[in-house]
Every structure is written in C-alpha cells, then in structure tokens.
C-alpha cells in the first residue's frame, strides 16, 4: 500500500529552519530568516519585517492575548501561519486621524469609538483582508504566528541583524 503524503507546516513551537550554504557569496545577501523563530523570540503584538522590497513589507506578528487596535490608510492582508487567531474589525467614528499620505499601520490608543463590524476566525493557512481605514485587532488564546502583507511605516520594526543568517 502506498503511504499518503504528509504536508509539513511549521509553528511557533515546532519549526525546522533551513539555511544558506555559500560557495562564493555572502549569506547576508539572502536576508535569511524563519518567521516562526522570529515570532517565538518576539514580544506579543510586535510587528517585525522579515521581508522588504523598497517600501513594501512582509511583517511577522506574534499574536498572544488581545492586541491593541491598529489602523492603516491602505489595505493590508494577514495569514494565520499556525494557531487560531480571531480578527476583530471596527469602523471608526472619526477617520480624520488616518493620513492617506502615510504608509504602514499605526496603533490606536485604548478603545477607539466606532461601530463593531464583526470578526473573522482564522485557522492555519487562512488569509483575511484588513481593509483600508478600518480598525482591527487580533485575539489569540495561545501564542500564534501571523504573516502580514503591508507597507513599511513608522511602527514597523526592522531587526535584520538579529533575525537573519550571517
């Protein structure tokens, strides 16, 4: 009998990192990291760039407990990479603080006034839209890894020397 294929995913508490072996190059040029390792070594809700292409970023966020509310002038997307995460959405009463000329997310203080839009329950491999100008927050009952498609902003953290193979 032929054995079924087993698809190998990773998680914040179970990953096996690869790497770069150079013959004639500098491994730093490959900016090599592992998102689960980054999440495992992050504080809750930190958003750390693991990939950058000019202004665009892919960021990793360690979801744990309830995050602050965040908002962005442009769309973003989030993928749950290992464990369950709930995304809560809110339409802000006052959008005047969202500057269309500014890229990247910003954290909102406290409980912003607005209408609850609903929530999405993400499991491993689910991708959700974080629509422009809508506040969102993450909730996770255990540490989980989120991958975000975004644009670099003032709150995006870059720690390349800490996270990448040298």
């Amino acid at each position: 009998m032929v054995a079924a294929y087993k698809t190998v995913f990773g998680s914040i508490d179970d990953y096996r990192k690869g790497g770069v072996e150079c013959l004639n190059d500098d491994p730093k040029r490959y900016v090599y990291s592992n998102m689960f390792e980054v999440a495992a070594n992050s504080r809750p809700h930190e958003r750390i760039a693991v990939a950058r292409n000019l202004d665009y970023t892919i960021e990793v966020c360690r979801a744990e407990g309830l995050s602050p509310w965040m908002v962005c002038a442009h769309d973003e997307f989030v993928v749950a990479m290992d464990y369950d995460v709930t995304v809560h959405y809110r339409k802000l009463d006052d959008e005047s603080g969202i500057d269309d000329s500014k890229d990247g997310f910003r954290t909102l203080a406290g409980e912003p006034a607005g209408r609850a839009m609903g929530r999405i329950f993400l499991k491993r491999g689910h991708q959700a839209l974080l629509p422009e100008k809508r506040a969102y927050r993450f909730e996770a009952s255990r540490p989980a890894t989120l991958m975000l498609q975004s644009v670099s902003g003032p709150e995006t953290q870059e720690k390349w020397a800490d996270i990448c193979q040298k």
């Binding site: 190998v8 096996r16 072996e21 491994p27 090599y32 592992n34 689960f36 390792e37 892919i58 990479m81």
Partner: peptide
C-alpha cells in the same frame, strides 16, 4: 550557493 528552505523560512 545552495539555499535550503523549510516551512516558515524567508
């Protein structure tokens, strides 16, 4: 070079 990538690697 040779690059070996596993789940979660970037």
């Amino acid at each position: 070079a040779k690059v070996t990538m596993r789940a979660g690697d970037v």
